[in-house]
Amino acid sequence: MDAGLLAQYVMNGLMLGTMYALVAVGFTLFFGVLDVIKFSHGDVLTVGGFTALATFVGLGALGIKSSPFVLLIMLIVAIVVTAALGMLIARYLVLPLRTAPPLNTLLATLMLGTVLREAVRLFYPQGANPKSFPALLPTDALTLGQFNLRLDNVLMLAAGAGVIVGLQLILNRTKLGLAIRAVAQDEETARSMGINYTAIVLVTFALGSALAAFAGIMNGLYYNEINFGTGLLLGVIGFAAAIVGGLGSIYGAILGGFLFAALQIIGAVMLPFASAYKDVFAFAVVIALMAWRPTGLIREKISERV
């Protein structure tokens, strides 16, 4: 295969992998801290993306169009909105259902995801149709043979990597991160050490949701498009990636995300006649992996007390 084409595929894989990793990390954070599967995560991503779009439209109406500035504002607004949404979800849906069987939380968040998705479809102007997402990053490109190295992609990759590294730093180098890890490890002990359990849970949800907003904007910039169903598939992929990597492990989630992206690329290369089948291929392999290693490639931190 032509080196340029290969490089294109690799770039593609890196972009997708970063997005999936961002979503997967969110799932793993929520599971780690509360042992819950928050199925609305993908749709929170959609809300983040549409919030950014709405901000763009709003800023445009105010006459503000200067590119990096607009993007920054969109980012901030989307992150604030999704973080707030994440906290509300935690406070009013997930925490109250703690005492119920975990199935109920899964169902409730699944339904909440539908509510968010339908709300966007019904209440955002023309929400049912795909909306074009503005190209706000410089589109200069370096052409190396068949490979088109675009500056905006490189910037997004760098930003995505930066976010993931930043998250790792927060979790491993700050007191907040320590508190989060303590709560994820053992709620009782964390409480008895004076950690405000509820506050940490809310912060974790805010953090995970903010990651989703970032992924949503990245998705919009990459495809120049966004639609109300975007988050759903991304959410399922992110969830599958988190499981196959090992729920509860950040590294596992990142690994899972890139693994899924790689599988999709491989699938697209192997089955060029219908790109829809690349998703089938990727999921089939992931499901096979789940069957082989149920606790994930990196051990899932479940300990059922018998």
């Binding site: 599967i37 199925f39 899964l106 399922v236 969830f239 499981i243 789940m290 069957a291 149920p294």
Partner: peptide, 10 residues
Amino acid sequence: RTRGHYAAVV
């Protein structure tokens, strides 16, 4: 052989 949420994802 796996837990509930796996069947959900699949």
